[in-house]
Computed example of a mutant assay.
Amino acid sequence: MKFEEIEAVMRKNESLSEQYILPENYIIVRLDGKGFTKLTKEKLTLEKPFDARFGKVMTDTVKHLFNTGFKVIYGYTQSDEISLLIDKNDQTFSRKVRKINSVLAGEASAFFSLQFQELCVFDCRTIAIPNREMLLDYFCWRQEDAHRNSLSAYCYWTLRNNGFTENQATGKTEKMTQAEKNELLFQYGINYNTLPAWQKRGVGIYNKEVVKPGFNPVTNETVDCVRKELFVEKELGMRGEYRLFLKEILKCKN
């Protein structure tokens, strides 16, 4: 078979297996650290349950992903997870799912690895979201997941730091309600409500308009310039408050 004939067959096979995000759908991309439990236990020296440097690198990774060619509206990170909201009109890579997944997973993995000088890998999935209410539901869901995991992590490491083994700490907390977990922490002198918000609720990143002084060389005058800058919100509200915060960000994209 000639080269041209082989190529035609292969290209056809590729196109038949393609998946696309349909028009008028928002794109959400969620990235997760692959094997990060082993990475954080064996290769990185981190504070438990939350490490400030690790949190900063996760935030910086999100900021990096804002500059990879996609129209990212909002980024959210908690633990070793990143969620990106991409504009419904974005046509990058013709909205091919495999390209979105491979490019963003590669960018995140490469950037994160460079920060720690260790091989770190993210996997990636792309989700089509048809309307704004579902968008709000998605991010509120991920924040609630952050809150639950944070509370559990604090309980686990509090017990470990007070003489419990891995199995004992896991067994003691796995069937506790959230109220019981808060009470456990309080018994060890920890008020969960006063802990840093980024540890409990995650971090939001979005473009914000700021006014900065500029210079007009034609009129030789100082003028105010409106520019967009990435803003990191470490004090996210919860539930209804968080929903209103997201609505304001989406409103700016009309």
Score class of each variant (00 low, 15 high):
G106F: 08
Y154D: 00
S102E: 07
A179N: 15
K172I: 13
N162Y: 00
Q187I: 05
I129K: 05
H147W: 15
C140Y: 11
K172Q: 14
A153P: 07
F139W: 06
G189E: 05
T92S: 14
C140L: 15
N89K: 13
A105M: 01
L119Y: 13
L84V: 06
M134Q: 14
L195K: 02
F186G: 00
P196M: 11
Q143H: 02
N149E: 10
S152P: 06
Q187T: 13
G202V: 06
N89R: 14
Q199L: 04
F111I: 00
F111Y: 15
Y154T: 00
D90E: 03
V203R: 03
T158K: 05
W198L: 13
M134G: 04
N162D: 11
L195V: 03
E107N: 04
T92W: 04
G163E: 00
T177A: 00
A153F: 09
P196W: 01
V203A: 10
Y154C: 05
E174P: 00
Q117Y: 11
R160I: 12
R125T: 10
D90G: 00
R125D: 09
S150R: 08
D145K: 08
T158F: 04
E166M: 10
I86R: 03
S150Q: 07
K172M: 13
N161I: 02
L151T: 05
M176H: 09
Q187P: 03
F139M: 07
T126D: 06
R142Q: 13
Y192K: 08
G171C: 08
V121Y: 13
G106W: 03
Q91Y: 12
E144R: 14
R95V: 04
F122Q: 05
E118W: 05
V203P: 05
N161D: 14
G202R: 05
I190F: 09
I190S: 08
C120I: 04
C155T: 04
L84H: 06
A179S: 14
S102Q: 10
G202H: 02
L114Y: 13
Q168W: 01
F111M: 05
V103S: 10
L104T: 13
I190Y: 10
E166K: 14
M134V: 10
I82F: 11
Q199F: 02
I82Q: 02
L85G: 07
F116C: 01
N101I: 09
V97I: 07
L195G: 08
N89D: 12
I86Q: 05
Y188H: 14
T126K: 04
M176S: 03
L104F: 11
K172V: 12
V203E: 10
N161C: 08
R132W: 03
Y188W: 10
V203W: 06
C155F: 06
T126Y: 00
M176G: 02
L104W: 04
A169V: 08
N89Q: 10
I100V: 06
N101R: 04
W141R: 07
K181I: 00
R125W: 01
Y192M: 09
R132D: 12
F164A: 15
Q117R: 15
N182W: 09
T173W: 05
K181T: 01
C120Y: 02
G189S: 02
N161M: 07
K96F: 07
K175M: 11
D87C: 06
Q168H: 09
L184T: 04
M176P: 12
D137G: 10
E183G: 06
D145G: 01
Q168V: 11
I190G: 09
F139Q: 03
K96M: 11
T173C: 08
N131I: 05
I129M: 13
A108H: 04
R160Q: 09
V97E: 04
P130I: 08
T92E: 13
